[in-house]
Design a protein around this nucleic acid. Structure first.
Lengths: 220, 220
DNA sequence: GAGATATCTTAAAAAATTATTAAAATTATG
DNA sequence: CATAATTTTAATAATTTTTTAAGATATCTC
């Protein structure tokens, strides 16, 4: 298991590095956010331990940057404060877990092992299909540089189609994943939503949603 | 994305259901473990949110039961206590993540999204015969580098023939697998479809579908 | 090889599916 | 509580797919 530790306090960094190596991890280190981000992008770590309070780029920024660039490497963030909103920010930015200072080495080790035991999270916040980008956290949709406004059902429908990009999604699957139990399976509501979606995301040049008669819809 | 929320406290359930619907989820709900388990087995949810402290069957039991029955639906367990051993139990029972009460809605949402960010298991299945390739999840058909457009019945027919590659498939078998019970067995619709298929996939060089008079059709 | 049976071909009718429009019902929002 | 936005329903149009029908061709049996 190869870890990256990013921490500006040299004593702490020294201590962590030697301790983790004793515990049989391969450890790289960096002393600021920029260097950390560089190492994280160049190498393929099993886990990144990030102090939030870092020079140049703080932990949260490093975290967001990595996730935006499509990295799924687990991140354990270490922050000083422990306010509720803080924790949520960390998780939203793409951190997998957090630890608040002060912490014991034993505690850190337990967290590291817990994260490494989890099945890897491998999708970013963004879903893409061509120049269409959905942010599944803010619910914003962009077509190239143009922002598109979708309703809730439209977003969910597009999200499902893009998650299954390339594969045909049957009406049954659509009903199952976008609507709840109280939806009439014979209604034409899917067709109507597909139509409205197409009006919003298609251009004369490019048609995103393809009908596959008798089977369902797909995105190329 | 469709969720199931199982929670016996009606106020909490009401709150969660409306909040999650606002966040664009399709939400079903149940008030005890037994009903929850039933819904979970009947429907195909993207995620199940389970309170651990439930009447009739507790969350842990529901979780184990589902896993025993081969379900892989992600489960987020909500428990009161936060002892280490408890958490381990939850994860061992097959939960994908846990949250301890009290929790903020924002925190719950962050966890849900983290879980749903994991990629769906969609293995696309390819069928081949010579340079003819069928993708049974995108319903695309390629003849070498050339894309071929088949109708639904044509695809099903070709699929059946390729699955029995080398063997003769009788008209009876074709009727049984590609058509439903209400098809006139004396009609010439099979012949017509075979013909249309041949027009689309055969080339002067190579004939794919071979007629075996009195027996049926086969692919070499 | 002739008659019988089965298969191939063509084209058009029928059926099924999907797209479109508009309005009603529902739900959110100030 | 009224207004606006969203979602659903319903009715119709357009399109695609499937089936039917009828004549031509091939294959098999005797």
């Amino acid at each position: 298991m190869r870890l990256l530790v990013v921490e500006d306090n040299k004593e702490t960094l020294e201590f962590l590095t030697t301790a983790l190596r004793k515990d049989k991890f391969a450890v790289d280190s960096a002393v600021d956010g920029e260097k950390g981000l560089y190492l994280a992008e160049v190498n393929n770590y099993d886990l990144i331990i990030l102090d939030n309070n870092l020079p140049i780029k703080n932990g949260l920024e490093v975290c967001s940057n990595l996730r935006e660039n499509g990295s799924h490497t687990p991140i354990l963030l270490i922050s000083v404060k422990s306010k509720y909103s803080d924790k949520v920010d960390l998780l939203e930015a793409g951190a997998d877990d957090y630890l608040t200072k002060p912490f014991s080495y034993k505690e850190l080790l337990a967290r590291i092992k817990a994260i490494l035991r989890r099945p890897p999270i491998t999708q970013s916040l963004f879903l893409r299909a061509g120049d269409l980008v959905l942010n599944t956290s803010s619910y914003e949709v962009w077509r190239g540089t143009k922002k598109i406004y979708l309703t809730g059902k439209e977003f969910s429908l597009l999200e499902l189609l893009i998650k299954n990009k390339g594969n045909v999604v049957s009406r049954g699957m659509i009903l199952e994943h976008v609507w709840d139990a109280e939806c009439d399976p014979f209604s034409k509501t899917i067709e109507t939503h597909i139509l409205n979606l197409r009006k919003k995301i298609d251009t004369p040049k490019k048609k995103f949603i393809i009908s596959v008669p008798g089977r369902g819809y797909k995105i190329a």
